[in-house]
Design a binder for these strands. Structure first.
Lengths: 350, 350
DNA sequence: AACACAGCGGCAACCGGTTCCCGTCCGGAG
DNA sequence: CTCCGGACGGGAACCGGTTGCCGCTGTGTT
């Protein structure tokens, strides 16, 4: 028996009180720290606390209305690099502010999301942060709005982080980044290098992130009076495998292009491998660009030209604005900027 | 006012009871589902519940001793691919089992870890899972053991997932994977290809994961009667930048080697870039291998030969054994196997 | 018609904390 | 010596739930 106390398992505040010969109120006051307590009593209580290795039950405190509320965030897949960076920002800022962080991955299943939000309402979470893009359908807006109302009426707050907003009137905080602007700048860079047939490896066509990036691709063309061949717009999802498959297929079909812009770096990675497999060199035969600036983009060969997105900052802002909101402040809507980072995977045409 | 009810904000069980004209106990019983309640009463209660959009406060239930306890996991950095996969396994299994998941990143700061564990004791978490390797010092063992005892006395459980065990007698569950075995097999593969001077890009020398992999490296040499040049054992950390720097330095010093084994795929990625920068081809001039089999390993060029570690499974097992433990079962210690996956980055010597 | 019993629902105690309110004891001022 | 007020600590109500126990009612037996 190396344990110093009688090892009572979890001990309550009344156990401590009994051992110190005082009432539970006094123990609570000593631990609270504000109420005046004589130093003799304080010492006895602290001693009992140490002897029993007592820690107040955070859940009981929560019921009594003290204690910091928790925060929750929901994402599709924690192993995705951009998701992970947002999660990092959220967790980090929450910790800095003294909040605990609940996490839920949905694996793309809407049902999981709805159930989890309901649980968070029961937990009386301070805020629920929905992280990462989504399809923007009427059902989505309807469902999400219901979640927002339901959380709001329970005193919580819904935050959309990199997700389609719901239109006016919904009790939500929205933090977005400029998908279209980033894609515009990136594609403009590619076009400036003289490329005229630029293959676009996009995402699902109802996915807002994919839509934004595709709009940027088109806008950059139009700004120079170009009208891109619709056959060059391919759709898949945001995975490495999708990039690989799409690229492989495009090559097999003999599609003509001198540059490839992928909707994400993951897609670009898959595409790059497919290009290599086909015996093509990058950027010698084909130029390639990605989107997201995940850490690995530097270590692809050639190092990938891409668009940097301040994912971590996005997460941090999400918790800050959700928590710092004053009752009378309006629902916020932030839009963060992006910028292209030029590396070695895009070369002049010819 | 589209809201259908009078929108009471959070409503209590007594509000529901009042509206349904019954007592709080009855509402509780209707919601509980087991106790016999007449169908007329049940209908009235359910109606009130729906009208008020009532959800029972999970924290209050927890205090009353019902409701599923939460689970917590702690890791250094959620953006690391292998960490992320363990986190994924943990979260997924927890959800399957109906538990909520708290997360904390430490950024390598021991103090954060200790504070968080204390909070989890206050939360009465079912289990706290410490994820990922660590330095194995006397202080580490002492501190971790204290955490384990303290959690155990509060009815929680400490789980070490991919972390150094504490020796006999500590109330911990340990889930490890075979670092040494994997490295042994990998290095054996490299040696079989005829390489004799194999550079090892290791981690911190007091880090158990790094130690295990280094032991494997040495053992594989000794098994064939080889005695590796100590100058070929380099130490850094597990980051991409460390790999880049170490490789760059080794090349600058004119160290001689025909193959490189990196302690992680991240390190290998950095090393690969450094090799490319020096104008060397892989595996033409130098062979290269990694460890972890992160998804990106496939998309490096050449595709990286590496060791697969069942990270997700590791996380899943951590929660399963922590939760499924019966009071009389002994403290478990699992060791999962690894296997090498051969791709294109290792070629025969000469 | 009296009785037993099952079905149903309310009261009150409890979970583990916090805090309002009040009583006691002390010292210092008049 | 009395009176006053501030410092200190205890009792009890409360937070929002659950549940043991008991009493009421209605129906089916004998």
């Amino acid at each position: 028996m190396t344990r110093k106390s009688e090892d009572a398992g979890r001990s309550t505040i009344r156990d401590v009180a009994a051992r110190a010969g005082v009432s539970a109120s006094t123990v609570s006051r000593v631990l609270g720290g504000v109420y005046p307590v004589s130093s003799a009593t304080r010492t006895r209580v602290m001693r009992a606390v140490r002897d029993l290795d007592y820690v107040a039950d955070a859940r009981a405190k929560a019921v009594a209305g003290v204690g910091t509320p928790t925060l929750a965030f929901v994402l599709e897949d924690i192993t995705g690099p951009s998701f992970a960076h947002m999660a990092y920002g959220v967790e980090r800022e929450a910790r800095r502010l003294g909040h605990l962080c609940l996490v839920c991955t949905t694996e793309g299943d809407v049902q999981h999301e709805v159930e989890f939000v309901e649980m968070m309402r029961a937990q009386r979470a301070a805020a629920v942060i929905l992280v990462g893009g989504s399809a923007d359908t009427p059902e989505y807006r309807e469902r999400t709005r219901r979640m927002a109302d339901s959380l709001a009426s329970a005193g919580s707050r819904l935050v959309l982080c990199g997700r389609p907003p719901l239109g006016p009137g919904a009790p939500v905080t929205v933090i977005e980044y400029d998908n279209e602007g980033g894609a515009y700048a990136l594609v403009a860079h590619v076009l400036t290098q003289g490329h005229r047939r630029v293959l676009f490896l996009g995402g699902a066509s109802d996915h807002t992130t994919a839509q934004g990036r595709e709009r940027g691709y088109l806008a950059a063309h139009r700004a120079r009076g170009l009208d891109p061949d619709p056959a060059l717009l391919l759709h898949g999802d945001f995975t490495r495998d999708s990039g690989h498959r799409l690229m492989h297929e495009a090559l097999r079909q003999g599609l003509e292009f001198t540059a490839v812009v992928a909707a994400t770096d993951m897609v670009a990675a898959g595409a790059l491998t497919a290009l290599h497999e086909a015996g093509l060199t990058v950027p010698g035969d084909v130029s390639l660009a990605g989107y997201d600036d995940i850490p690995f983009a530097r270590d692809l060969h050639p190092a990938l030209t891409t668009v940097h997105v301040p994912y971590e900052e996005l997460g941090r802002l999400a918790v800050r604005t959700a928590l710092g909101r004053t009752p009378e402040s309006p629902d916020e809507h932030l839009l963060l900027g992006t910028h292209v980072v030029v590396r070695d995977s895009v070369a002049p045409a010819e």
